[in-house]
Nucleic acid binder design. Sequence first.
RNA 1: GCUCCGGUAGUGUAGCUCGGCCAAUCAUGUAGGGCUCUCAAUCCUACGACACGGGUUCAAAUCCCGUCCGGAGCACCA
Length: 504
Amino acid sequence: MDEGEKRERYAVLVKSLGYTIDNNEKKRKDAVLPPLPLKNKDQPVVMRIAPNPNGPATIGHARGIITNGEYARMYKGKFILRFDDTDPKTKRPLIDAYKWYAEDCRWLGYNPDEIVIASDRIPIYYEYAKKLIEMGKSYVCLCEKEDFKRFKDNSKPCPHRDQSVEENLEYWRGMLSGEYKEGEVVLRLKTDINNKNPALRDFAIFRIIYEDHPRISNRYCVWPMLDFESGIEDHLLRVTHIIRGKDLIDSERKQRFFYDYFGWEYPVTIYWGRIKIHEFGKISTSSIKKGIENGEYTGWDDPRLPTIRALKKRGIDPIAIKNFVISLRVNISDITISMENLYAENRKIIDDKAKRYFFVDDPIKLKVKGIDNSVEKHVKIPIHPNFPERGYRELNFKDVVFITSKDYNKYMNSIVRLKGLFNVRIDKNEVYYAGDEIKDLPIIHWLPSGLKMRVISPEGTYNGLGEEGLENSIDEVVQLERFGYARIDFVDKDGEIIAYFTHK
RNA sequence: GCUCCGGUAGUGUAGCUCGGCCAAUCAUGUAGGGCUCUCAAUCCUACGACACGGGUUCAAAUCCCGUCCGGAGCACCA
């Protein structure tokens, strides 16, 4: 019985006896991943993530980072970040993305133990290619793409399949020294031309690309295909477990051919399905990139985006992301999940910490009638209602209040309580004092005056007045009462507070 | 078309390997209520699922077959 199971049983037992469980325990319970199948108990667990560096990490990537990183941690193993940047043309790497991605890992709490960049290791892949040619397991194919497809689809060997090792080595040298044009020639792995799965028949492992690589320029013109590079690396890095998208399921079948040729043991593989978020739809880094280029988004951390940087900017705690991701587990079926689940996790973490303040969105200035306005009233409201020992904030009222136009319209002609102050009846452009006693009235927030403030949310921007004190909460997540949580980003040169909406 | 996967409440999950303890777990959500000078937090209650049809068996969410629905791959992309 593992820890989680024990806890469950205990909880059931306790409940059956009529006791209640300490709530804090429930709240602080850290999400735990199910155990990993271990082939060899003595072998250290090595996990990896292998992104294409074309942008910073998104929530989808966070799933990979956290799950793999967490497993490495659970088994006191190693966590590797490897950039599979072997196509400078159609999957052109973004030079900043290498750095961004590593930063995102670190921020999520999973600093990679090792970072490997495939484009640094091309000669290694060449060595293994040469070995395969020498073993008679690989050949240079000069077929037109369409011709090869025809052969392949009919389980017919292409004319180059039976070339001698010497011929292949000669062609291979030619490839490396730039004697061929793009698309003219390719190195194939000799698999099984009769395999019932056409995807596995003599697939390409190297091709010619003359495009400059953003990191290493034009140093190479022969580039390995992902299936090859990734398979070689997983072996060289002694990766024990691979967790990857189910779209790569044929990749394993392909790689097993050369693992067999080399006599290597294939890592344990676990597949997961695609993750789709209600609020964002399917996440694709390339579409985000396009949106940034055409000005639709302000950048990779635009709060409307599902990137880790955007979530950070909005005040989502990395632990909340962890708990959220782990709750998804590792499942092969595609899932559609709502951000609400992430927000719920985040609320559990930030609510105890978040200072309370008022933010009056779309404010309306109202004169207060029916009371002696010559005296100033000092109102004290706790910074956090559940922790009065943290102190109070003070609002100094004198004859006018600002309330949101939403409340103004909603409570027109009715009596409401201005939190901490007194009751008023709302009328056109003014409010009338309606007593001090605390009755069963709607409670609304207000401000006697305030600082210009803007809250940027995925749905739009809210302009209004922020309570004094907010300007001292830079980089903190606060709760704007009756509005929602927000992270205070900065105060601009005009004194306006700029905040990002976290969630309700 | 060919290969290969998957289908538990609105959503995400546990259980499926080794059938019984499952009239099915937990979370989120929604609704109602308690507490509270926030529509937050917190507490209580309620709602809600084994895709369908057959079979095996004393017993099926769990094993087998079929149907339906969904997904992935079939690139000189990752």
